[in-house]
Computed example of a mutant assay.
Amino acid sequence: MLPDVIFVGPTKCGTTWIDAYLRTRPEVVLPEKTKETFFFDKVFSRGIEWYRAQFPDRDGIRVEVAPSLFHKPEARAALLQTAPKTKVVIMLRDPWDRAVSHYFHYRKAGEARLPLAEMAQRFPDVVEASLFHKHAQAWEEAFPGQVSYLSYAQLRTDPDGLCAALCEVMGLDYVAPPGSLSQRQVNAAAVPRNALAARMGRRSAEWLRRAGAHQVVNVLRQTRLKKLLFAGGQVEGERQAVRAQVSTLGMIAPDHAQMLDFLAARGEVRP
């Protein structure tokens, strides 16, 4: 079977938390060996039978939390071709804060400290995945009547309320998140002790995933290796400096204004 619901992101909007919550629900069937299969954006050539095999063979609501899909037209086209009846869920977040968090995603992966605009030039998804109106509109056009929205801000301030909204979107009975999830810090920034080792670790994990070795990556993530490669000092001072540069990301402001108008017209939750 194909997914009934897919959370398309974008990244840095609480999807890891959502995946962790859904894995506490026995009636939800998620990929067994990994959070994301990357099927629709990176390994679509493997075919639908490969994708089906990533899910355990049992009854339930089939779901994938796949935040890398949000800003990729080819992923949207692949999902539409394969599973046109799938319900799509988009997580909304302040787009500038999301871009700053994405900046630190690359810093944590071993990239050097750079001006925000330079990091965005090197990694275009820093800005592209914050263009909520542009991409949400494309999802709406591809999946009319099948797109829902949830708020990252609500996850930060009211995880129980976010869970209630999540369950309503999915047609699940409400079950509160475990205490361990309610207390989990969302998107804490850090930089690695060794940037070169972190870059090598990120590229190795990407290669293993593309080779279909998701389980190897998952096993390694449970060891001390992940902490040794990616853990490091907190960066609150750097975060403040980067946040002060968000005005250099000129494409975000007009898109954000359009998104607020769209949400107001729809009566949807604001980021």
Results as ranks from 00 to 15, higher is better:
Asp4Ala: 08
Gly9Thr: 05
Pro10Thr: 04
Thr11Met: 12
Lys12Gly: 03
Thr15Gly: 07
Tyr21His: 11
Leu22Phe: 10
Thr24Lys: 06
Arg25Cys: 07
Pro26Phe: 03
Glu27Phe: 08
Leu30Tyr: 10
Leu30Ser: 12
Pro31Cys: 12
Glu32His: 10
Lys33Phe: 07
Phe39His: 14
Phe40Arg: 09
Phe40Ile: 08
Asp41Lys: 07
Phe44Tyr: 15
Phe44Ile: 04
Arg46Tyr: 12
Gly47Pro: 10
Arg52His: 13
Gln54His: 15
Gln54Ala: 13
Pro56Asp: 09
Gly60Met: 02
Glu64Gly: 15
Pro67Thr: 05
Pro67Lys: 07
Leu69Met: 15
Leu69His: 12
His71Lys: 02
Lys72Val: 12
Glu74Lys: 14
Ala77His: 06
Gln81Asn: 14
Gln81Ala: 15
Thr82Pro: 12
Ala83Ile: 08
Lys87Ile: 03
Lys87Phe: 02
Leu92Tyr: 03
Arg98Val: 03
Arg98Gly: 02
Val100Ala: 04
Ser101Gln: 03
Ser101Leu: 00
Tyr103Phe: 11
Phe104Val: 05
His105Asp: 06
His105Gly: 01
Arg107Trp: 09
Ala109Cys: 12
Ala109Gln: 13
Glu111Ile: 05
Leu114Thr: 10
Leu116Val: 03
Glu118Val: 13
Met119His: 09
Asp125Gln: 11
Asp125Ile: 05
Val127Pro: 05
Ala129Asp: 09
Ala129Val: 00
Ser130Ile: 01
Leu131Val: 00
Leu131Ala: 01
Phe132Val: 02
Gln137Leu: 08
Ala138Ser: 14
Glu140Thr: 06
Glu140Ile: 03
Phe143Asn: 04
Phe143Lys: 06
Ser148Phe: 11
Tyr149Gln: 04
Leu150Trp: 05
Gln154Gly: 06
Gln154Pro: 08
Gln154Ala: 07
Arg156Pro: 01
Thr157Leu: 03
Asp158Val: 03
Asp158Pro: 04
Asp160Tyr: 05
Gly161Asp: 03
Leu162Phe: 15
Cys163Asn: 05
Leu166Met: 13
Cys167Tyr: 10
Cys167Trp: 07
Met170Tyr: 06
Gly171Phe: 10
Asp173Val: 10
Asp173Glu: 15
Val175Cys: 14
Pro177Thr: 08
Pro178Lys: 07
Gly179Arg: 12
Ser182His: 09
Gln183Met: 07
Arg184Gly: 04
Ala188Gln: 15
Val191Ser: 13
Pro192Asn: 10
Arg193Lys: 15
Gly201Cys: 04
Gly201Met: 01
Arg202Leu: 12
Ala205His: 00
Glu206Val: 09
Trp207Arg: 15
Trp207His: 13
Arg209Val: 08
Arg210Phe: 06
Ala211Ser: 14
Gly212Asn: 11
Ala213Ser: 07
His214Gly: 12
His214Thr: 02
Gln215Arg: 14
Val216Asn: 03
Val216Met: 10
Leu220Gly: 15
Gln222Leu: 02
Gln222Val: 00
Lys226Trp: 08
Leu228Gly: 01
Leu229Trp: 06
Phe230Gln: 05
Phe230Trp: 11
Gly232Arg: 04
Gly232Ser: 08
Gly233Trp: 07
Gln234Val: 14
Val235Thr: 14
Gly237Ala: 11
Ala241Cys: 01
Arg243Met: 11
Ala244Ser: 14
Gly250Asp: 07
Ala253Met: 00
Ala253Trp: 00
Gln258Ile: 00
Leu260Ile: 08
Leu263Val: 06
Leu263Trp: 12
Val269Asp: 01
Arg270Phe: 09
Pro271Glu: 13
